[in-house]
Nucleic acid binder design. Structure first.
Length: 315
RNA sequence: GGUGCCAUAGCCAAGUGGUAAGGCAGAGGUCUGCAAAACCUCGAUUCCCCAGUUCAAAUCUGGGUGGCACCU
């Protein structure tokens, strides 16, 4: 199945490029963003507005309540359904977003096996970590799954616990589970456009400016509303909300919090780039090489058309 | 013009005779059920400059330069 994709760091211009591509190729956007899925977080997550969507159908945006738990597994399940639907409609799915884990899991068709996980196992492991220390758990993991243990640092407690949990819950080690999860292979044949900047500060400037715009659009009110309704859930990890807590509690000025938000967003963009850069299937376009959005779009369109033809020949 | 204080990485900063802590920023990286999360790695051949004392100087002495404060 032929699909197009636009990935890259936050504020690189994925949204507008994806919409233009959809207009040219009769496409529909399948969002690949772990935070834009939530309702009521439009400003902070920079979810596309009606106006930005330009009438192009967008899927998997703003449909989950922020107090609901969510996961990669669920994302993949939903995204695959969306893609099937779009193809059935004769349109081109354009997977767009910056959540690397979700993206790769979808594109590579990672299989997530049933787990009757009620959280009890994890809670116990957490308790043990507190009383016995992370090193004990890591040593334990070495005994059952050295491959995974070797790659983990003691400080990365969350992952140590998860690896142990997988084994306790399923009887299979995490490394074995990973192998099994790739057995199916992917039926998706993607042409992936990656957005990056030749000059990192070019991207960072865009981020800083976008945060200022978010503030003008009422981000603080959105954050206030968010915290009056939800707490401690997956959604509260989103950048753009927790940074205003010190301000809402009267501990810091709005300016200081805004600076912090910019900084966190820059760090996030860097992590996103680290994730995408290693994927050799991605065709990167440097946004600072183009003088306008149309120019960038033309180049991306060319690459996708070429990629589509190549995909045809394979069949 | 005089007196005092200060000068260490892009920024903040410890060190006051024994061979340059730490934090922030920045860069690079890891990633399979919370991922906008979590985690890892990396910056001074040298402490404003010059001379001196000493086995040894960012540390002591003298001079210079720059900044700050006060006085005139």
């Amino acid at each position: 199945m032929k699909v197009a994709a636009v990935v890259g760091p936050t504020a690189s211009g994925k949204t507008s490029l994806a919409v233009m591509l959809c207009q040219a190729l009769s496409g529909e956007v399948v969002s690949c963003d772990s935070m834009q899925i939530y309702k009521g977080m439009q400003i902070g997550t920079a979810a596309p507005t009606e106006e930005e969507m330009q009438g192009i159908p967008h899927h998997l945006i703003g449909f989950v309540s922020p107090d609901e738990e969510f996961s990669v597994a669920r994302y993949c399940e939903l995204a695959k359904k969306c893609i099937d639907g779009i193809i059935a409609r004769g349109n081109l799915p354009v997977i767009t977003g910056g959540t690397g884990l979700y993206f790769n899991s979808l594109i590579d068709n990672i299989e997530f096996f049933e787990e009757d996980n009620n959280g009890e196992c994890r809670a116990q492991l957490k308790l043990r970590a507190q009383t016995e220390g992370a090193q004990v758990l890591l040593d334990e993991l070495y005994a059952i799954d050295p491959e995974t243990a070797k790659a983990l640092h003691v400080n990365n407690l969350g992952r140590i616990i998860r690896a142990l949990e997988v084994y306790l819950l399923t009887g299979k080690t995490l490394s074995e589970t990973k192998r099994l999860s790739r057995l199916k292979g992917s039926e998706l044949d993607p042409v992936i456009i990656g957005l990056d900047a030749r000059d990192r500060s070019f991207l960072y400037d865009r981020i800083n400016r976008r945060v200022d715009m978010m503030l003008e659009s009422g981000l603080v009110d959105e954050a206030k509303r968010f915290y009056s309704l939800y707490s401690g859930k997956t959604s509260s990890q989103a950048i753009g909300y927790k940074e205003f807590l010190p301000y809402l509690n009267g501990e810091k000025s709005l300016e200081e919090c805004a600076e912090q938000l910019k900084l966190q967003t820059r760090h996030y963009a860097k992590r996103q780039l680290t994730w995408f850069k290693k994927d050799e299937r991605i065709r990167f376009l440097m946004i600072d090489d183009y003088s306008c959005a149309e120019e960038l779009f033309e180049e991306a369109l060319k690459i996708i058309k070429e990629g589509m033809q190549r995909a045809d020949k394979h069949k």
